[in-house]
Amino acid sequence: MSETFLKRHDRPGPRDAEAAGLRWLAAADGVAVCPVLAVQDDGLLLRRVVGVAPTAAAAEAFGRDLARTHAAGADRFGAPPPDLDGDGWIAALPLPMTTGPTGWSAFYAEQRLRPYLRAARDAGHLTAADAEVVEAVCERLLAADLPGGPSAPARLHGDLWSGNVLWSSEGAVLVDPAAHGGHPETDLAMLALFGLPHLDRVLAAYAEAATLQAGWRRRVPLHQLHPLLVHTVLFGAGYAGQAVRAARETLAL
């Protein structure tokens, strides 16, 4: 019998969002996800992933599989998993979802940057001057003045930092998603934010399996801006400098 573990959730919202996200990602038949065995009042019963050291071959397979997950798509930018009612969660924070069609730039500005910009500013983690730099990115997005918008929404993990990629004997396994419809470059930028083993092999394999738009590497700071703002809200001003640098690099595009 496979080993299991109970991931405890004190609140039903994050528990249900995580379960819905894992099921939706699994349905893409791309990257493996940690299977949800049961949704319980006290959390999620999951299959335990026995970790191994990542290899270059596993990293390349992950890149190809991630391209398939993204290609499974979503109904719209900001769409939640189909069996999730309402907004999602990223870490301990609510993650807004859209209720109708919208372009990616407007979605990213209004649903991914501004809510966390306001929260970071209100908590005193961003100065007024720093907040203006991030707001300038939002204004350029709303004016469709930044390159690289996708033609269709991808099926994103949404919180794809290295700690949410587990390496098993059968390859990469994803955990703890903030799944939604979005820009494929967002997941790729998140992988680079805190360092992933063999990242260059992951990206090369992804690029062989999917078409990346010209200049995608220059847009990494734009896509890292959301998680950096989330970290600023959660952990304080120590992340504010990184967020503002990402905003300034974006404004230089």
Rank of each mutant, 00 (worst) to 15 (best):
P82Q: 00
M97Q: 11
A131E: 09
A252H: 03
A179L: 14
V36W: 11
G43K: 13
L46Y: 13
L46E: 12
L126P: 01
A58R: 00
P81W: 10
D130A: 15
R112T: 02
V165M: 09
L196H: 13
G63M: 04
R245V: 15
E18G: 05
A131R: 03
A106P: 11
P150Y: 06
R219L: 05
A119P: 02
G86P: 02
T99K: 08
L166I: 12
V233Y: 04
D87S: 05
D41F: 11
G148Q: 05
A136K: 06
P94I: 01
P150S: 09
W104A: 02
L37V: 03
L222Y: 07
D122A: 12
M1A: 15
R64W: 04
F107M: 05
A67K: 04
Y239M: 06
G236A: 04
A119L: 03
K7H: 14
G51P: 03
L253D: 08
Q40C: 12
H180W: 05
D10N: 10
Y108M: 03
A247T: 02
R248I: 10
Q111D: 13
D200M: 09
G51S: 13
A204K: 04
W161V: 10
Q40V: 06
A204F: 01
R47F: 05
L93D: 01
E139N: 13
G43F: 10
W167G: 00
T69N: 02
H157G: 06
A61M: 07
M97S: 07
I90N: 00
R23K: 07
E132F: 15
G78I: 03
A92V: 08
G158Y: 10
G149R: 13
